[in-house]
Computed example of a mutant assay.
Amino acid sequence: MRLYVAVEEVGVIAADVRPTGAPTALLAALPTLVREEERWTTDETDPHCVHTIDLTTW
């Protein structure tokens, strides 16, 4: 599932997550995870975000 998170300094970041496992822990950590620039990649096919993050294995 792709979540879109607005980060004030950067813009919208898309986070790819798995809806199974521990979604409560992921949602609590999401504000910190989306600001970690080493996780960012660019998805040229998604016009709704400036960066993407793959958290499917987090």
Score class of each variant (00 low, 15 high):
18 R>G: 12
4 Y>D: 12
40 W>P: 04
35 R>Q: 11
55 L>R: 05
39 R>L: 14
44 E>D: 14
37 E>M: 06
31 P>Y: 01
49 C>G: 08
48 H>N: 11
10 V>L: 13
36 E>L: 15
24 T>L: 14
1 M>A: 07
11 G>R: 08
15 A>R: 01
3 L>P: 01
26 L>R: 04
10 V>C: 04
50 V>G: 12
22 A>R: 15
42 T>M: 08
34 V>K: 12
37 E>S: 14
49 C>K: 09
29 A>V: 00
44 E>T: 13
53 I>C: 03
4 Y>E: 06
5 V>C: 14
16 D>A: 15
33 L>H: 04
39 R>Y: 08
8 E>D: 14
20 T>S: 13
32 T>K: 15
14 A>Y: 01
3 L>F: 05
16 D>I: 03
25 A>P: 00
33 L>W: 10
25 A>Y: 04
21 G>C: 03
54 D>E: 05
16 D>P: 00
4 Y>I: 07
13 I>M: 04
23 P>M: 07
21 G>E: 00
45 T>H: 05
46 D>P: 01
46 D>R: 00
40 W>N: 09
52 T>D: 08
15 A>T: 01
34 V>W: 12
8 E>I: 08
12 V>Q: 03
33 L>D: 04
13 I>L: 05
2 R>H: 08
29 A>E: 06
42 T>L: 11
19 P>T: 11
14 A>N: 02
33 L>V: 07
22 A>W: 09
13 I>V: 15
39 R>M: 05
54 D>C: 06
23 P>H: 07
12 V>A: 09
44 E>P: 10
2 R>M: 04
9 E>A: 15
37 E>C: 05
44 E>C: 11
36 E>S: 13
3 L>T: 01
6 A>P: 03
45 T>W: 06
15 A>V: 11
34 V>H: 10
58 W>T: 06
48 H>Q: 10
7 V>F: 12
39 R>V: 02
26 L>N: 04
22 A>I: 02
4 Y>K: 02
41 T>A: 15
33 L>A: 11
14 A>F: 10
19 P>G: 08
15 A>E: 02
44 E>L: 13
32 T>Q: 15
33 L>Q: 08
54 D>W: 02
27 L>C: 04
43 D>F: 02
53 I>S: 06
2 R>E: 12
24 T>C: 13
34 V>P: 09
10 V>F: 11
